[in-house]
Design a protein around this nucleic acid. Sequence first.
DNA 1: TTGTCTCCCTGGGGGAGACAA
DNA 2: TTGTCTCCCCCAGGGAGACAA
Lengths: 719, 719
Amino acid sequence: MASNSNRQGSSMHKVVEAEMKKPCNDQDQISKLKAEEDEVYRQLWLACAGPMVNVPRVGDRVFYFPQGHIEQVEACTSKDIDVPMPIYNVPYKILCCVVSMQLQAEPNTDEVIAHITLVPEKDGESSQHQTAPSIAWESCIRSFSKKLTPSDTSTHGGLSVPRKCANECFPPLDMFQNLPAQDLIAKDLHGTEWPFRHIYRGQPKRHLLSSGWSSFVNSKKLVAGDTCIFFRGKTSKLFVGIRRAIKPENNTSASLLSSQSIQHGVLAGAFHAISTGSLFNVYYYPWKSPAEFIIPYNQYMKAAEIDYSFGMRFKMQFEATEGFRVERSPKFGGTIIGIKDIDHTRWPGSEWRCIKAKWDSAEDAAICPNRVSPWSIQVVEIYKRKRKSIPPDSKKARPFNPLFPFSVKGGKPDNGLVSGITKNSVEHIHHGLSGVLQGQEFGIVDAYNQRTSARLPVSHLSLKPFYGRGEKQIGLDNQHQLQIHDHHESTISIPGGVSTTLGIAISGSPTSASRATNYANGAKKSLSILDVNPITSKSQKKCISEAPHEVQPVDSGTCMIFGVNVLGNHPKVPSPQFVVDGELNCFDVVPTLLASQEGVSKTIHVQERSNDNLQEELCSCLHINRSCTKVIKYGTALGRSIDLSRFNGYGDLMSELDKIFEFNGSLIDMSSNWRLSYTDGERDRMFGDCPWKEFQAIVKKMFICPKDIDDSVQARAPV
Amino acid sequence: MASNSNRQGSSMHKVVEAEMKKPCNDQDQISKLKAEEDEVYRQLWLACAGPMVNVPRVGDRVFYFPQGHIEQVEACTSKDIDVPMPIYNVPYKILCCVVSMQLQAEPNTDEVIAHITLVPEKDGESSQHQTAPSIAWESCIRSFSKKLTPSDTSTHGGLSVPRKCANECFPPLDMFQNLPAQDLIAKDLHGTEWPFRHIYRGQPKRHLLSSGWSSFVNSKKLVAGDTCIFFRGKTSKLFVGIRRAIKPENNTSASLLSSQSIQHGVLAGAFHAISTGSLFNVYYYPWKSPAEFIIPYNQYMKAAEIDYSFGMRFKMQFEATEGFRVERSPKFGGTIIGIKDIDHTRWPGSEWRCIKAKWDSAEDAAICPNRVSPWSIQVVEIYKRKRKSIPPDSKKARPFNPLFPFSVKGGKPDNGLVSGITKNSVEHIHHGLSGVLQGQEFGIVDAYNQRTSARLPVSHLSLKPFYGRGEKQIGLDNQHQLQIHDHHESTISIPGGVSTTLGIAISGSPTSASRATNYANGAKKSLSILDVNPITSKSQKKCISEAPHEVQPVDSGTCMIFGVNVLGNHPKVPSPQFVVDGELNCFDVVPTLLASQEGVSKTIHVQERSNDNLQEELCSCLHINRSCTKVIKYGTALGRSIDLSRFNGYGDLMSELDKIFEFNGSLIDMSSNWRLSYTDGERDRMFGDCPWKEFQAIVKKMFICPKDIDDSVQARAPV
DNA sequence: TTGTCTCCCTGGGGGAGACAA
DNA sequence: TTGTCTCCCCCAGGGAGACAA
C-alpha cells in the first residue's frame, strides 16, 4: 500500500526520519533505542485502542474473565442458533500470568488487537507482584492526535497540522527555505511505512501533510471524524495510527466457526488450559469488546477491598471526544442500585458486571451499561469503606474438577481461587463475628450444629468447603499431587493438572479398606496449614455491609455482596439442558457410587419404601454430575429433585421443602411429626448436623420421614 | 461498490435485465421463478467454489468428519502455541441431517462459504435416504466462465467476451444498430448488482463488456488468471461470480480465537451437539479446505462397499485449468500403498485420509495429497470388489460417553456409529464366521470361558464391547436413556445425553450389593433386543481382504482395511499429555475403582509381589483414563505397560508380550511354562477366555506367571 | 476469432493561494 | 490559527479502432 503512494517529491527534500542513530556501538544504546521504539509502539497502540483501554505487560498477573471474553466474541459474531450452551466447569475468573503480549492491528481495518498469551497461575497467593515500573518514557515521547475534518479527508489537499503539534512532534523545518518542506516516513501498527510530504505554506502559513496523505486516507478508508495519531520518540522514529469514529462492523459471514462453537472454544480452551496448566492465547479487541476481560491483579484486588453496597455513588469513565492529546472522557456519575451475579446459573458468585448502576443523567444511561464490574468504577471517596479483613488471595487448590469441562448445572460451590472477592466478603462476616479464618488457608466455616461439627476432623472443617465435597488436598506444589479424602472418597491428580475425584464405597476386602484408611490418616498429618477456630453460627444470615450510608436494596429479594446473597430470597434457577430427567430410573438400579465432584452435583430421589430400602439406598445411586439432590418423602411415590446450590442455608432448604411437600410450615417449625434426614457417602445422618457448606458437599440423598420411622433406621442418630 | 461504478451510458441503451416477469399472477409461476433463481445462484456458487466442490442440500444425510473440519481451521489459522490438544471423546464421523444450507461469499474477497446447519442423526440406520432429485435446471441455465487475460484486467478497455459465450449467455443485441449495445446488470453472490455495458464493436467486430467492467475488476481486485463466471437462467436473471487463481491468504492476526481455542471449539461444539442432539453450524470454505469434510451419506456408503486393498489402482480429480464451461480437471492416477487411520491416538479407526497413495507421475505427486479418503477416489473398475456383507449402518447407540468431552488417550473401542466402515469390516468377520451380530443391537460375543461368563448377565456379554468396559445400554431411543452395568459399575445418562460411567467396588454391605445385582437382573429383562450367539475365536486374525489382486503391502506392518490393521505389526502410539504418570502412586493407596470409560483406557502396572499381593491388587488401582494396561511378570521387578488398542487380537498381544519379555516365541507356542492371565473388574483372575474386544474392555491388569504358581491363585483356572 | 497496442480525450484529484471563521 | 473554497493543470484511464497471432 505504502509503496503505491510513495510519490516522493523532488530529491531536494531531505528525509528527516532516518532514525538519527548515532554511531555508537554501545549495546546498551541500541537496546535502549529498541526499547524506546517498543514503548512508542505500545503507546501508539493504546492511543489507537482508545483512551479507556489498557493492557497488561509481560509478567503481570491478571484475572481472566471468561464471561467477558464471551461478551467480546458475542459482540463479534451474529448469534446463529439458539441452542443453549452447556455449563462448563470453569471458574468465573482465572488468575493468570501474562506470558507474552503482542499488540497488533487487523490488516484491513487497522483495528487494534492484543494477542495475549496467558498461563494459569498455580498459586492463588504469592507476592503482590508489581508490574515492573516502566521507564519514564513519557518525557521523551511526543504525540498528537487530530480528529479529521472534511477538508482533511477531501480529495483536494492534505492534512492541516496544528502548528503546535507540528512543532512538537515533527522534526523542525528549515524555515530559511522559500517553501520549507521535508519528507517524513511514518510507520503504522503493521510496520508499513507511509511517506508524507510535510510542507509549511499557504497564506497565512500553516503546516500541511500534502503528498502521500491522500493515499493514506484512501488506503485506510478514513473519513471525517476519524482520528489520526502521530507518535515520535527521542530517536525521531515516527509512527502513525488511526482510531475510527465508527468502528468497523463485524464481517458477519466471515467467521470460521459458528458463534456457538466459538463460545465452546473459549470455554473448552480455558478449561483445558487450567486443567493442564498450559499456555493459552487470547485475542483482545478493544474496539469490539464491551469491557476489558483481563484485569490486572492489583486492580481487581483494590476493588475487592471496597465494601460495595446499595446506594453508593461512583464515577466511571468512557471513551468520548478528546483534544489533541489522548485523554480520557469526563466521568459519568452513577449510583449502585444492586449487587448480584448476573448469571447465577453459569457463573455463580461472579463479580463480572455484578453491580447494577443507575446513571445520574438520562443521556448517560443511554451510553453507559446497566451493569458494571467493581474494578471499572471509582467509588466516590465519601462512600469508600474498606473491608475489615483482607486476606487477598489464599493459597488454595484449583477448585474445579478438571475431568469435567461441563458442569451439569449451576450450583458451583463458592471456593478459593474461583471467587476471590466473594470469598472475602463472606470471610468478612465470619471474621467480624467470630474471629476465624485468618492466615493463608481459610474456609467458610459454619457451625449450624455445634455438636456435630465438633466430631468432624479438624482438617475436614478447614479445607472441605474449598474442595467441593469433603476433599482435601496435599502436596499442592507437586504436579503428581494426590488428593485424598475421607468418607472413602478419593481424588487423583493427573500430571499436567488433569484430575478427577471419585467416591467409592469401602471395598469388601478389609485389608484394602484399612490400607486406604491408614493412608488417608497419614496424609492428613502432612497438612500443616490448617487453622481452625470454633465459630458461632449466628453470623450466617447477617447482611455483611455495615456501611452507614447503606440503604435497603430496591430490587428486594437479593442483597448480594460480591455474589453472595445474604438475604433469604432466591431467584429461580433455570434448568439448563444437562439436567437428568431420566435419572429417577437409576434410583433402584445402580449401586451407589459416592462421587465427589466439585461444581458438579447430586442425584436425588423420592422414596416410598420400607426402612430396609432406606438402609439399602445408602449406596444405591450414582452421584456424579448431578446438579440436583433427590428428596424422598416416605410413603409418597413421586420424589423431587432440588438444586442445593440455590440455597444459602438450612433455613432456605427447609422452607423450600416445606413448600414442595406442602407441609404448610409444619416442617419448618417442627410441629409436624416429619423430619428430614439424609445420607452421605457412609451412612445415615440426621439433618442439620454439619455446616451447610459441608452438608451441600456430602449429601447424597434426602429423606423426609415420620420421626418414629426415621428413628428406627438411624443407627447413630446425632442431634 | 456497484453504485460507485454505475456509470451508465446514454439513455438510448436499453436495459435488458429486468427479469422479464410476465404479468402472471400465478403463484406457481412466481415460486418457479424463485426456484430457478435459487438454482442459478447455487450453480454459480458451485462454479465459484471450483469444479471439485460439492455441497449437500437441505434434508440430505451426511457424515461430518471433525478431522476434516480441523484440517480446514488449521489451514486458516496460524498455529499459535504448541500445546497438545486433549483427545475429545467425539466420534471420527458423525451422521447428520442437513437442516439448512446457506451459500454465501466473504464480503471482501468473494471467497465462497457454505454455512451449513446440521443436526446429529439419532439413528445410524434408517432408509437409504435419497436426495430429492433436483429439477433438471441444466437445460435452461446458461453459463460461461473465462480466465481473464492481461488485456481483460488492464486499465485500458474492457472484457473481451468470446462470441459463443455472448450469444449463449447474454440477451441478443439489436444487430441493426450502428454500434449494437445494451446495458446488463449482473448480481454477484452478495446480491450486489453490477452494471455492464455490453457492446459489439471493433474491427473485426467482437463482444465486449466495456463500461462497468473496470469497476468490477477493481472492486473485486481481479488479476489476470482469475476467472469470471456468468450464469443466466431462463428468466434472464444474470449472475456474475469470480474464482481466483491465487486464493486469498488468511488474515493471520484477524482471528477472534487462538487456533487452539478454535480446535477446542470444533470439538467441544461437535461433542455438545451429539450430546444434546442439537443443531450445530459449520462453515465450509472450499477455497481453504484441503478436503471436503461433509460427505453425503450415499457417497460414503458407496465407498464403504468397496474392498480397498493394497495395490489397487484409482483415479482422482483435482481442480485444474478448464475451458469456458465449468469442468473438472483430468483425473490423476495413483495406487494404494497403504490403508491406515492417520491418527490412531485421536481418531482410531477413522477413514479420513486413511489411504496412502502413490501417484503415477512425479508432478502429480507434487500437487496431490499423500493421503486420500476412500470416498474421494474412484477405484479403477478392474480392481473393484465389493465387500461380502454390508450391513451399512446399524442402529446403535452413540458410543461415546457424553460426560467426557476429553478422552485421556486413544484406544477408543470400535463401536457403532463411531466407525461405520471399520465396524462393517469387523462385523463382517463375525458375521461371516459365526453368524452373529444380526439385528439392530449386536455385540461381539464370546464364550471363551463359559464358567465365568455364564455368571454374567446375558446383556452384559452382548453389549459390552461396544460401550467400553462392560457397560451396556438400554432404552436407546430414549433421550433419558439409562446405561446399566454389572460389576457394580454404573452409568447414568443425563437427558441431552450427558452421562458418565463409573465403577465402584462392592460395598461393604452385603444387602446393597445383592440388591444392586438383583436390580441389574431386573433391568436386563427389559432388554428385548439382545441377540447372542456363540462364536469361535479363530476368526480373529483373518485378513478380511480376499481380493485376488491384493499385493503384500510395501510399507509392511500395516494392512489396514478401513482402519483395522489385519497384519500384526503396529506402530508405536505416542503418548499424549493426559496419561497419568503419577498413577503408580495410587497403586497401593486407593481402593479399587473400576471405571468403564468408552474411549478411555486402562491402568497397568508392574508387579513383583507374592500371590497375596496379586490377590490384593485385583481391586487396588484406579482404572480411569489410562491408555495402557499393565503387564506384570512374576518375579520381575519391572513391569510393562502396553496399549491394547494397538492390537487386533490375542495373537498380536501374545507376540508383543513374547517379544517384550523375551520369551523367544515360547510364550506364543505355549512351550514355556508361563501363561498369561488377567484380572477383570470383579477381581476374577482369568485367562484369555472371551472375545478380544470384550477382553480389551474388561481387562484391568495382566499377569505372566509360571503355570504352577498361576494355578495356585487361580480359583477357577480355565484354558 | 480474440489478444494486445496505441491514440484520443476527458475528468478526478493533487497542489497552490484566497478567503473567512 | 485553521477550515473551506476555488482555480489550475496533469495524467490515469476509458473508449475506440488498428493490428497481429
